[in-house]
Design a protein around this nucleic acid. Sequence first.
RNA 1: GGAGAGAUGGCAGAGUGGUCGAAUGCACCGGUCUUGAAAACCGGCACGGGUUUGUAGCCCGUCUAGGGUUCAAAUCCCUAUCUCUCCGCCA
Length: 428
Amino acid sequence: MLDPKFLRNELEDTAKRLAARGYTLDVAHISSLEEKRKKLQVETEELQASRNAISKSIGQAKAKGEDIAPIMAQVGDLGSKLDAKKAELAELLQQLNMIAMSIPNLPDDAVPAGADENDNVEVRRWGTPKSFDFEVKDHLDLGEALDGLDFKNAVKITGSRFIVMKGQIARLNRALGQFMLDMHTTQHGYTEAYVPLLVNEDSLLGTGQLPKFGEDLFHTKPATEEAQSLSLIPTAEVPLTNLVRDTIIDEADLPIKMTALTACFRSEAGSYGRDTRGLIRQHQFDKVELVQIVHPEQSMEALESLTQHAENILQALELPYRTVVLCTGDMGFGASKTFDIEVWLPAQNTYREISSCSNMKDFQARRMQARFRNKADNKPALVHTLNGSGLAVGRTLVAILENYQNADGTITVPTVLRPYMGGLEVIG
RNA sequence: GGAGAGAUGGCAGAGUGGUCGAAUGCACCGGUCUUGAAAACCGGCACGGGUUUGUAGCCCGUCUAGGGUUCAAAUCCCUAUCUCUCCGCCA
């Protein structure tokens, strides 16, 4: 959520900055609601003030043993007038809040302007794509031939866009998650967390999945009418970031760096034609998530280091990649600046997204009321939050199958993963 | 699943329906003392919002959340959520 002051005092300027990311702010509508709000709120508070004054004088008169009948007469229909104003104001505030919660974050000034992914800017490249002296296969053919990827049974058990993994491929998937977690906890200073995969509505509002993107999630159907519906997490960013919701953190405890390996669930609504084959776009996949809660002055540096942490995994796995900075038009809802890391996939002869690292600044913190006590004035101030994939395990598996394939269809196990595979050097 | 108890400021913890936004302690901030620190002593210290040029003043709201009773609710009533204790069941 943006600072409400932006909508009150800097509406035009805010609209201009949002236009850069392709979002049109309804300035006329908001300013007319704001005007009404201001008037109504003042009126309501004035009524409350006079009611409070009368009630207080009743108390004082009673304490002195005076007759309160004349004061009671003053009360009149104050109560019903007040109730009406209050209801009207509450409805207006609800409307304004809904609008505020649906406005995306402002892009950072350093973010390149652009309309879509074609305007993203490559910032660096690492590694050289290997040249193969045989015809490369894609990860589906490789995985199915090794009896490691079983799409048919996944469809039978659940439906499309789910996977059953077996044997050494299943083990490789597990090894990848373990390896990533170990690297982030032992070398990058993150604390491992085990978190719920089902979260409540407040958490989803906090990180920005709600109110706008409910259709991207899987929701549980509550057993009773009154019970609240829980939703499956689309990323561990949700539970990890919400750890600091409604808390005031000691400044000395910043930065907080958390990581978790979880399954992630996405309904992929509206992407029916895309990446239908293979593991690239699944309803369920494993991901190691990195989250940092930092002092506002440090968030841009933190974004650089968090992105580097994700890149370090690819370097350790010796997978070629490139890093791009997303343009204003391609960024996610809550992000002010995002780096995407794209891994080389030989079968597609292109780089594909494997990690997305974002600085959300105070956008989530304001929704979550996540604050720290500022040493400077001893007052609570909003923290900045960052998150990134470190990495998406399923897509890393794809990258390994394709980049480490041999002419005979076997897969060489990357050196750093061998300890996690019982010393196995080749899957075949 | 059954029975009971509870939820108050950063934390702990008082609070007869009427100057209660809330005692007290800890933590924190400033000061005195000290070569420095500690201790002791003095002072300050909840959060959000409105109005405003204003981090000044004034006003409003907030004692888990949402309803209700009342001129007036932390305090009374209802509902939800969560926590704790006991019983049952269970990986």
